[in-house]
Structures are given as C-alpha cells and as structure tokens.
C-alpha cells in the first residue's frame, strides 16, 4: 500500500491506464467541479475538497466520508474540468479502494446479491411477467434469470474476481453473511 494517490494511479491505471489517473495531479483547486455538481447542490459532496484530500493522503477520512457515495457519476465535472482531470473515474477508483477495505453499505452490497442470484440488479417477478404479456412479449426475457447455465458464467466471474468475498456473500444461503435468517434461502 502506497499513498492514496499512488494507489489511485495503480488501481485505476489497471483499467483506464496510468496517464488517465495521473491527471489528478493536475488539479489546481479551481472548484469548477464543485460549482457544476448537481449532488453538491443538495448534499455535502464537495468534489474539489475530495481531490485535495486525496492529494494530501487523507485516506481514512475519505474512506469514512459518506459524501464519497453521493456522486451519481453524472460526468458534469469530468466534461467541464479546465485541467482535464478525469474526475468521475478518479471518484469511482477511490470507491473501489474503499470497497476493498470494507467500506460498503448493506444496500450497496445487496445489489451484488441480486446479480449473484439472477444475473440482474433488478430481477423479474410474477407481476412484471404479466406486464410483459400485456404488451405482447414473452413472459420472461431469455436472459440469465431464465437460463441457469448462463447465470453460472456470471457467478464464475464473481468468484474469479473475489467480489463474493468482498461483499461477504454466503453461497449456501445465497445472501449476505449475517442476513441468512431475514433474507435469502429459498
């Protein structure tokens, strides 16, 4: 583990390329991101502050800040940054690092449960099948929720990348560990 900046460049660099992530260093704290931010209009998210915190290595403070999760990834600041800082991808990378260190809310972890169980973040149920029939469609689309062999491929990806362990997934109960009674087992 290096400084937060080094980790952002290394982690994000694996996907976007290091140059893309190194744009963080170009930030001149002008605040155009914060001024453009539709979330900041209603929440305490201050993108400029977030980047300054990242640059001075306030790792734990960022990872424990609820505001980190108030960005909707709308890319308005990304489009407008006069220094070409790849803002949204930097925020997503900081979130990736935070998630790997256990900073992930239960509702966010639950999205992974739905995809692990059905292949869909928003699965279909009986009521929606009727809606499909009413507009002349097959009651269920031919996706992973219908084809279990296909779903297994998606589950394989989760196992390969360790996403299941990251959200503390119980494969026997097919839900989060600690939520077995309330939730999952069918």
């Amino acid at each position: 583990m290096g400084t937060l900046y080094e980790d952002i460049v290394a982690r994000g660099g694996e996907v976007f390329g290091e140059e893309h992530m190194e744009t963080l260093r170009e930030c001149v704290q002008c605040g155009k991101c914060t001024g453009s931010c539709p979330s900041g209009r209603n929440t305490a998210l201050r993108t400029r502050t977030l980047f300054q915190m990242a640059l001075v290595d306030l790792r734990e403070e960022i990872f424990n800040s609820p505001e980190l999760w108030f960005c909707t990834t709308c890319y308005t600041c990304y489009e407008r940054c006069p220094k070409g800082v790849k803002t949204t991808d930097i925020i997503r990378t900081i979130r990736n690092l935070a998630a790997r260190e256990g900073h992930m809310s239960v509702p966010h972890r639950m999205i992974g449960v739905y995809v692990l169980k059905t292949g869909h973040a928003v699965p279909i149920g009986p009521d929606q099948m009727k809606l499909r029939e009413a507009v002349g469609l097959e009651s269920q689309p031919p996706t992973t929720q219908k084809h279990k062999d296909q779903l297994e491929q998606v589950q394989t990806i989760f196992r390969e990348t360790g996403y299941d362990a990251m959200i503390d997934f119980n494969w026997d109960a097919m839900t989060l560990k600690g939520m077995e009674k309330k939730g999952g087992k069918k």
Binding site: R11, V15, W69, N96, H108, F158, T161, Y163, M166
Partner: peptide, 8 residues
C-alpha cells in the same frame, strides 16, 4: 458496479 469493483 464500476464504483464497487472495476475488475468485476
């Protein structure tokens, strides 16, 4: 998912 884990 891009926010949680790019590699997944």
């Amino acid at each position: 998912f891009g926010s949680f884990d790019m590699h997944t």
